[in-house]
Design a protein around this nucleic acid. Sequence first.
DNA 1: TACAGATGTAATTTTAAATTTTACATCAAG
DNA 2: CTTGATGTAAAATTTAAAATTACATCTGTA
Lengths: 146, 146
Amino acid sequence: MHISNKCSIAVHCLICIHEFGKESRVTSEMLAMSSGINPVTIRGIMSALKKDNVISVKSGVGGAVLCCPTEEITLYRICSAVEPDFLEKLFGIHSSPSQLCPVGKNISAVLKPSYNEVAEALTKSLKSITMAEIIDNYKNISNREN
Amino acid sequence: MHISNKCSIAVHCLICIHEFGKESRVTSEMLAMSSGINPVTIRGIMSALKKDNVISVKSGVGGAVLCCPTEEITLYRICSAVEPDFLEKLFGIHSSPSQLCPVGKNISAVLKPSYNEVAEALTKSLKSITMAEIIDNYKNISNREN
DNA sequence: TACAGATGTAATTTTAAATTTTACATCAAG
DNA sequence: CTTGATGTAAAATTTAAAATTACATCTGTA
């Protein structure tokens, strides 16, 4: 089980936008440099965050800014935006069990309620962590270097 | 993010072993038929469960039996057995951020504490679900058909 | 108004990870 | 000592994620 890089990349972008967005225009090209991810993937992620009203991007001239308070941007919101079905994909289920075996026939139905319980716990935890905390964390860590 | 099929396959095998293990010898060949997964993968999973003392397998003649109470077999234990580093892999982090950018340089350290919090919540939830419940669930669902 | 630098997105190619397949050594009951 | 099983390594295949390529569109400015 693993959540794709997209969530981490999105957080990376949001920190950059928060930290550098006031002085300079934060473009997908710049975010690509900073993250080591190609600009098209960055734009896909930005596009998803835009649809969820987390950021807004000036079309034409470019540059992204946050459009809601960092306290309201949870990890859950970010994951949902960039990978809408991440909870369904959390646990893989083998796709072709034997329909002749009573276990094979029912395995998916048997697993789902338990997996849903876990998904709910995960959701709750992801909702409890906000960009406000993460940015605080970033500031502490990066200040320590000076 | 997603947990690989292995956990689901392991649960499938454990249900079969619990339900059919007393009357017949549950072999990897039979589990492969029931799950639709090839016998080598099954044997790999069985091997992992054996190392964790969840099951024991008669070598030579074959056949697996549970060797601990179903209440003590949690989803956490199963996941850890079949995929020891599943918690570290839960969230992917992009691997080559720019070391020249203050965000890039620190992103991994910034993300880790938050991701660990989530991993702990997940762990707790996975520990709360046991094979005893899942087998109950299986019995309810499969009886409904008759 | 045309250009320059940017976003938005589709389609294809590449890469990386997970599974399957193949192969073979080993074990134990009959 | 043969048969049916496990245990495991190595190679091949499949699948999913990311990168690349390509191009339409937008907007401030020369």
